[in-house]
Amino acid sequence: MSYDVNGQTVETDEEGYITNLSEWTPDLGAVIAKAEDVDMTDEHWAVVNFLRDYYEEYQIAPAVRVLIKAIKKSLGKEVGNNKYMYELFPYGPAKQACKIAGLPKPTGCV
């Protein structure tokens, strides 16, 4: 698999996670989101940016409950709850949002 963004081809693994994390740009995030059928809103980007910051600091993508707890703390419980997060990312906030954020699949996600 691969994505085309601004005339460049970005390689992915068989599940659509990009293989070279340094190739990510917000434009690529938008392209992956489109392929995933996700309409990106400010809330979506807030989650994606949180994931990228978390990875940068700790070198892992957080587990979904860690993500939700952290989003609850930073953006409030209207966004930081299980139901709303699955509305934003129907295929799983950690799994799908990590894909859009250009991160590896979270540890423990099968």
Binding site: Y54, E57, Y58, Q59, I60, P62, A63, V66, K69, A70
Partner: peptide, 9 residues
């Protein structure tokens, strides 16, 4: 750096 994330878990 991942050891510093353990508190979140």
């Amino acid at each position: 750096p991942t050891f510093r994330a353990l508190g979140d878990y």
